[in-house]
Design a binder for these strands. Structure first.
Lengths: 344, 344
DNA sequence: GGTGACCATGTCACCGGTTACCTAAGGGGT
DNA sequence: ACCCCTTAGGTAACCGGTGACATGGTCACC
């Protein structure tokens, strides 16, 4: 029957079922205008010989495949995994697969690399993670070559169908107000890298809250990091070397917050009694270290899931996916790394 | 010139260069039997019109594509990211891309799902991460449908060209001997989940070291976890509730070691003075928490890189890739979570 | 009874590459 | 001068699907 070797193809199915390949194609694609009897017959043959459609052939004919890409340059492993988890949740039970593409933001050929990648693979669409999602030229490249995209970010980056975002500056304001209400006045900031919207938003929230409380902060209470543990450690050390020392530190992400805790304990300081710390992201490390860290829960999994759904909006048919929200509120999670400042 | 719309195809190049498409194909594939002049002419046209070969068409004709898959069911984000990093390092500057496929080990349809995935995508090959890499039936599925595979594991799982492994039991023995040499005799073990080779190997190393030292351990000093923080926390609590308490804990991975530290500190205990802790994996958390944790460095990035190279051995031509090692020694990293037991 | 609408299905070219095989030209050996 | 071999390149079929359009049968309606 079957042409001896090799996987069965649509031709084998057609021959065995006594129909044309087009009819088989219709069965596979759930075309509605099929006689139930014919459909059953074809489906039986498919099951019998274990036919699996060839995605490459389909991709060629359709001029698009069923792959979604994830482009990122994010240093935080936990976050990338969370994003992957969100995407995978969205594409579960579909025929889509996820293809991961880390890029090197610094590289001068970055844009060309991505363009080449997108053109070669003809992805159905891509999700772009911060921080590189903030690069407008990258989005422009996607638009130019006609590749669907959704950007994730800390603030509005694009039109609603092309992004999901959170309200970073607002929630940071809330976090800092919390510290202020406990009596903290010397609050250090470990800022994210220059040129990043997320860093800018978080810093903005910090500065607004401080200004609103009428606190005058010396410039030295703002230290720069670039979202990694190591730079966070250096920044925290700089802050803790100050005299008088800050009584609280807000770090722009959890990695750097964990580094602050590390730096404090290395000096024999007690957290939260000698130093309050607030982080941002609510990745696993925040709740795993001791003391459990007060941080901002950044709903990254939901955002990623929603972003993926947006990406596949026209695949699913506009009904549900197009109603996905674009704005995701972050919330302050109170744990044990914050206390009123010790009275000197 | 070019058929107005759409990306240029091999036909456009052929027409413009005044050669047949086969000749263009030869240029793309660096066929050696080409006149340098013709080659230059074709290459010029390719550059001029920005031709990019269509990977789907090629995949169809070649009956294989240039995608490598990563199959995993690993709960540890950092580890998965490290593996991805290793793979990406290996395929950098090639045309290969990485496609990630987390699976649900518990699911009754797991094998069928993976089989379907492999058959549909016709991957060039897959890498299988522990713990699911230990499932021989999964490897059997790969073999059956003719998909290249490499398994990563904690012990020999397959023939050398199909695996990379580490020497877990040996290095755990070393770690436990270290504790014993410091004077510890009541050493708790937080074991990994039953049925996992990695868990078994690590436990074996533990038991061998203890037995060799002539120590008789009560069964209660072995608590089960399943590699997650939460189960580690529960296991650590069980150990610390014992009386007399263990003076040291070896946890089968860093997550559970971090959980032990968390549990100890929650009780007001001091690490390492009241309790020594050793973990396994050397993921970021081990060096980020306080005190920095003594742990076993598991060379996962190198292993992943090497595994990917093995996978692509016949692509690269056997010269370098086939000489990749299959066994990677783990090493004990001494940090600050271990000290001699306090004299009662 | 003829006609058009509609339904289920078939035909065939095409997506953009590759393989197998063929041709034509040039070169050397005898 | 003849033959064979090598080199450079062309031809046509094929990989396994899909789209546009054609076909033949049924039914409702005038």
């Amino acid at each position: 029957m079957m042409k001896s070797m090799g996987k069965p193809t649509i031709n084998d199915v057609a021959r065995l079922a006594g129909v044309s390949k087009k009819t088989v194609s219709r069965v596979i694609n759930r075309s509605p205008l099929l006689n139930g009897e014919t459909r059953a017959k074809v489906e039986k043959v498919i099951a019998d010989i274990g036919y699996v459609p060839n995605v490459q052939a389909r991709a060629l004919a359709l001029r698009r495949n069923f792959l979604v890409g994830l482009i990122h340059d994010n240093p935080n492993a936990q976050m990338v995994m969370n994003v992957q988890a969100g995407i995978l949740e969205a594409i579960r039970d579909t025929e889509f697969e996820l293809i991961v593409r880390p890029i090197d933001r610094g590289s001068s050929t970055m844009l060309a690399d991505v363009k080449n990648f997108l053109e070669r693979q003809r992805l159905y669409g891509v999700l772009i993670l911060p921080p590189v999602s903030e690069n407008d030229m990258l989005a422009e490249v996607c638009r130019e070559i006609g590749c669907r995209y959704v950007r994730m970010g800390s603030t509005t980056l694009d039109t609603p169908e092309h992004m999901v975002a959170s309200n970073d500056s607002e929630v940071v304001r809330e976090a800092i107000n919390h510290l202020i209400s406990l009596g903290h006045t010397r609050i250090g900031l470990i800022a994210g890298p220059h040129g990043f919207r997320s860093a800018r938003e978080r810093r903005k929230g910090f500065e607004e809250a401080v200004a609103a409380a009428g606190i005058k902060l010396p410039r030295s209470l703002i230290a720069d990091g670039n979202y990694t543990f190591e730079t966070g450690l250096a920044a925290a050390d700089r802050l803790l070397d100050l005299s008088p020392r800050p009584t609280a530190i807000f770090a722009s992400n959890d990695e750097m917050a964990a580094a602050s805790l590390h730096a404090a304990r290395r000096r024999g300081m007690n957290v939260p009694d000698d130093l309050s710390i607030i982080g941002f992201d609510d990745t696993a490390i925040a709740s795993h270290i001791w003391p459990p860290m007060t941080t901002v829960h950044w709903p990254i999994i939901s955002m990623a899931r929603s972003a993926a759904l947006k990406l596949l909006a026209d695949f699913f048919g506009d009904d549900l996916a197009s109603e996905e929200p674009s704005m995701f509120p972050s919330t302050l999670i109170h744990r044990a790394s914050v206390a009123p400042p010790r009275r000197d």
